[in-house]
Amino acid sequence: MKAHLQQVTSPISVSFVIQPDKTNIYEEFQKRIHLLHSNGISTTVEKGTIVIEKGNITKQKVDIIIGSSSSDALRQGIMKAAESNINTAYEAEQTRSPNSIFISLEPDNPNWNGTWRGSLTNYPMRPGSSAVDVLMEIGSYPTSDNTCTVWRNTYLQGEEVQAVKDYRLCRGQGADDLVIDEGNDVKLETRWIGDVLVTPFKYDNLLLISSTRLRGDILEEEIVIIDDKPAIKGVQSVHTRAIQRIELKRVKS
């Protein structure tokens, strides 16, 4: 009932996903939900929703999955589905806080490796212009110091190659020391802010901010292009010239 109490003040949705063969647990939850004036196995309580269903918890489209550490099979299933180094993170956190009753984990490294295909669109769009096809190849994320991975964009019109940006994502000393290596001694500092890879840089009189993130199954890179000005003290207004957006879907892992 703690979830019910939390919903009194927070607009959240809580789903309890129960293994299909655990019918006794499912039926007990049904009884509990009826105590909250439900007409079935889903109910609205104050600002939130409680849902009970049978299924695979790792297949749910949710922001957070909470698993009981008392079930090794459940824990292993969740961590396997995470497709990341989540197991290493779990062991490290358990070693750091062995008596903790709650361990919160996020995958450290993105699972972006593979071949992605989509299109590039510039905003505002010029009259008569159209989106450009993009093929992006990303290698395995660099987890060791002084290593790099493929970060290559190929731009096409139909199947004819128009340009290739054969870059690399490189790690220096430590997980936070990341650069996009464009070649010819051009290296752009990049860093993770939440789940977004942010790369700010200047080119002539322009300030550009690149943000790359995974939204569902869409890998999105957005570059905001701004007219730069000499720095002054205090607030200074600047002009946003354009936004360039690439949206890609993985076609090969």
Rank of each mutant, 00 (worst) to 15 (best):
E189C: 01
N85L: 13
L120K: 03
H34E: 10
I50S: 00
V62P: 09
T43V: 15
N205M: 09
G48K: 03
Y155S: 09
A242M: 06
L120I: 01
L135C: 01
G118V: 06
E27K: 11
S97W: 02
S42D: 10
N87W: 08
D181I: 09
S144I: 01
E247A: 14
K252W: 04
N184F: 14
R117L: 05
D72V: 08
V186C: 06
T240R: 13
E106T: 13
Y167W: 15
P20V: 09
A3H: 14
E91Q: 14
N99G: 08
V132S: 06
R96M: 06
Q60W: 05
P127Q: 06
L36S: 06
I66Y: 15
Q162R: 12
P142T: 04
I243M: 11
T95R: 14
N99A: 08
T190C: 14
P20K: 05
N146K: 15
W116R: 13
T149L: 05
E221A: 02
N153G: 00
G67V: 15
T212H: 04
D204C: 01
F102D: 09
R171V: 03
T240C: 04
Y167R: 07
E160F: 02
T143N: 12
Q7P: 06
A163Q: 15
S100V: 00
K252R: 07
G172C: 12
R117K: 14
N146Q: 12
N39I: 06
S71P: 04
A175F: 08
Q60S: 11
L169A: 07
R96H: 03
E46M: 06
C148I: 04
W192P: 03
I226L: 04
Q173G: 01
P20C: 05
L169F: 11
L188W: 13
D166Y: 02
R152M: 11
G158W: 02
L207W: 02
E220R: 11
Q60A: 14
M1D: 13
R215I: 10
Y141T: 07
R245I: 11
R250A: 01
V251C: 02
K187N: 07
V161Y: 00
N87M: 10
K165F: 02
Q157C: 00
P142H: 02
D177E: 10
D108K: 15
N205S: 15
S15N: 03
T149H: 08
G234P: 08
T115I: 13
W116P: 05
